[in-house]
Amino acid sequence: MFTGIIETLGEILAINHEGTNVHFTIKSSISNELKIDQSVAHSGVCLTVVALESNSHTVTAIEETLRKTSLNNLTLGSKINLERCMQMNGRLDGHIVQGHVDQTAVCIKREELDGSWEYRFRYDRNQGNVTVEKGSVCVNGISLTVVASEDDEFSVFIIPYTFEHTNLQEVNVNDSVNIEFDIIGKYVAKLIKR
C-alpha cells in the first residue's frame, strides 16, 4: 500500500528486454536504502526490486503491466516518480493507493496559471472507472484532488512543490499517464453495476 506522496524522482539508466518482460534500472537517492524483493511504486506502478547497485535498483515489468501502464513510453533519462510502501505507524498524507494502475489517460490540457498548473486528462470510460469532484485520483503515482469531473475527463491543479518534485513537469499535451482511480469509488461503481 502507498499514499501517493512522492519521495523522490528517479532517472532511467537502462532498459533491457527479456522475452515479453522489460527490466528497468533506475538511479535515485533512495536506491541505496532499498532491499531485494521490496515493493516500490514507480510512477504509480508497484514493482518489485530484483537487483541493487550502489546508487541504482532494477525492477521488472511483465507484459500485463506494460499493457496497462505507460511504462513503455520510458526512455533513457526519463524521470520517474518513486514512493516506498507506507509504514503502518505513520500518517496517511495522501490517500490509500495500491500501486495497481487501472488504465492510462492522455493529457489534453496543461496550463500554467498564476502560481499553479492545471492539467486535464481524458480516459476510456468504457472501462467503468469514475472520478468525482473533490475526490482522490492517483496520476503517475501522485495523490491528487479532482477539481472538475466529467464522464471521461477530469482536471487537477498542481502546486509549485508538486510540479518541481515530480515528473508532472515533463507531462505535456498528448502524453500518456498512469491512472489509479480511488479504491472506494471503484467498489461503489462495481456494486451499482450489479
Rank of each mutant, 00 (worst) to 15 (best):
I26M: 02
M1E: 09
H165Y: 10
E7V: 02
Y119A: 05
K68Y: 13
G90K: 15
G141D: 04
M1F: 09
K134H: 14
R125Q: 13
I36G: 00
K79P: 02
L13H: 10
A61S: 02
R122C: 02
I192F: 13
N73F: 13
S155A: 02
T162L: 15
T166F: 09
L144H: 05
I15K: 13
R125T: 12
N129W: 06
Q103T: 15
N72C: 09
V101Y: 01
Y161N: 08
T48E: 10
T131K: 07
S176Y: 10
Q38I: 01
G10F: 10
E170W: 06
K190H: 14
N73R: 15
D182S: 06
L47G: 04
F121L: 06
V97E: 11
V173W: 07
V171C: 12
E33P: 01
H57S: 05
N81E: 00
R67A: 11
V49T: 11
G94P: 03
N73A: 14
V139Q: 02
E63Y: 05
D152A: 11
Y123N: 03
V49Q: 07
I5D: 00
T145R: 13
D182C: 09
E64F: 01
Q103R: 10
L82P: 00
H100S: 06
R122K: 14
L13Y: 08
Y123Q: 07
F163W: 15
N72K: 14
L34N: 05
V177T: 07
T166C: 04
I80N: 02
I26D: 01
K79Y: 11
E33H: 03
Y119Q: 08
G44S: 05
R194G: 08
Y187A: 00
G90W: 14
F181C: 08
T69Q: 01
N89R: 07
E111H: 12
V97M: 12
V49E: 12
A105G: 15
S54A: 11
R125M: 08
V132L: 11
G19R: 00
E180V: 07
N174L: 14
C46K: 15
K79I: 03
D114A: 14
Y187H: 06
S28Q: 07
S149H: 13
V188F: 15
V147L: 13
I142F: 08
L76P: 06
F121R: 09
V132A: 05
D151N: 04
D182G: 06
I62K: 10
E63V: 05
G141H: 10
E111C: 04
H165S: 07
K109W: 03
I159P: 01
I184R: 03
C138T: 15
S31D: 08
I5H: 00
E83A: 00
Q38Y: 11
P160A: 04
M88S: 13
S176A: 14
V137M: 10
T58M: 01
G128D: 02
E112Q: 12
R67Y: 07
